[in-house]
Amino acid sequence: MSGEHIISNALFKAGCGCPPVVKGVKRIRGGKPTQGAEKSNILCRHHNSLLSPLDSTIGKISNFQAQANDENFEDTLWLEGELLERWLLKTVINTAAAGWLGPQKLLPSDDIVRAIFGLEPIPNKIGLYSVEGICPTYQPRGGASFKAINLKTPFGLIMGGAYISVNGMPLFASFNTDLTERLEQGEAPELLNYYSEKGLQHLYHPGALFMDRKKGARLYIGLSWNGFLTFGDGSKTPFPPRKGNDT
């Protein structure tokens, strides 16, 4: 087994260099802050290594966020949205399979696992949504936070989705096609102004993730979908650049 990081270690490398501390998870008695609880035996080494591009993607985002602390930093990060989406789904599944959400470790469906490995397409309206605002528990030293959304069914509670904040930037992984609409309409009242005073707002497959700073111009992370970056004027360009294309 790999003893893999439940949340990619690449996310934390741009931080203060302190050992990761896990707190508030169910498998730790009382949810107390604990070192060394960030790993779990979920995949074998071979299958874990196949997901390295996903870990690399979130590492690039974290490094970009760290550089953005310099008000003179002005750049744009370009990424494949599908890689970030698969990382987000992988991380949600990891937390469930590792027992972070409760005493019973949850196992994902085969189709979700295949989608995470890029072997099947992710259905429309399932997967990555950007979220307006910032995580209120964000701390300058960085880190990640997790908030599961459970749905009541005749068979009991199931996970409908989860918010994962990356150094304060909230993202939402949905396993239900209408979940974001239901949340925005107030199905979970405590979330309506949790991330933003403007209310709870989600955007499916955003073309960019925007970063407002206390000092310095607004920055953004551009995301391609289906092989294309889409700009505000509606124009598109291939990404990753095709051979012979200097874009």
Rank of each mutant, 00 (worst) to 15 (best):
S174C: 03
F175M: 11
K39C: 07
D212A: 11
G234A: 08
R27N: 12
A173W: 00
H47G: 14
A14Q: 03
V166S: 04
L223W: 00
L191W: 04
A66E: 06
K125G: 05
T57N: 09
I158T: 12
W100V: 05
Q67T: 13
T153I: 09
P241L: 06
R86Q: 03
A68Q: 09
G234I: 06
H205D: 13
I58D: 04
M159W: 07
L43S: 06
P19H: 06
Y220H: 12
I221S: 01
E74N: 15
N226M: 08
S40N: 07
I126T: 04
G142A: 00
P189S: 02
T153N: 10
S109K: 10
F155W: 15
L171T: 05
H47C: 14
Y163C: 07
T76K: 15
A115T: 01
D178S: 12
G186W: 10
P206T: 04
F73S: 07
R114G: 04
A162C: 01
H46D: 13
F12Q: 01
G168L: 00
S109C: 10
L157K: 10
W225T: 05
F175W: 11
N63A: 14
A98E: 00
D111H: 07
P170M: 01
G143S: 02
A97G: 14
K13N: 03
K13R: 06
H5W: 00
V25R: 07
W87L: 08
V22I: 12
P140D: 08
W87H: 06
Q67N: 14
G142K: 00
P189A: 03
G156S: 11
P121E: 09
S145A: 12
L89A: 04
A14N: 04
K198D: 15
S2M: 03
G133L: 02
A10Q: 13
L51K: 00
P123C: 02
G36I: 05
N9V: 13
M1G: 13
T153G: 10
G133K: 02
R182V: 00
T57L: 08
D70A: 06
G222R: 08
E4H: 00
S174V: 02
P189N: 03
Q35F: 09
V25Q: 09
G30H: 03
K26M: 14
F175I: 11
G142Q: 00
V166I: 09
S145H: 11
G81L: 01
G15S: 10
S145N: 10
F228Y: 15
I112T: 08
A97C: 15
T180Y: 04
L229P: 09
G216C: 05
T237H: 15
M211V: 08
E184R: 06
K60C: 13
Q139I: 10
P170C: 03
L192N: 07
P53E: 04
F210M: 15
H5Q: 02
Y138T: 11
N72P: 08
Y220A: 11
Q67P: 12
V22R: 09
F155I: 14
C16R: 15
S174Q: 01
A10F: 11
G127N: 05
Y163E: 04
T153A: 09
G30L: 01
L51S: 00
E181Y: 07
D70S: 05
T95K: 06
A188L: 12
R114M: 07
E132W: 13
V21N: 08
E74Q: 15
L119F: 14
H202F: 14
N226G: 09
G17V: 10
L157Y: 12
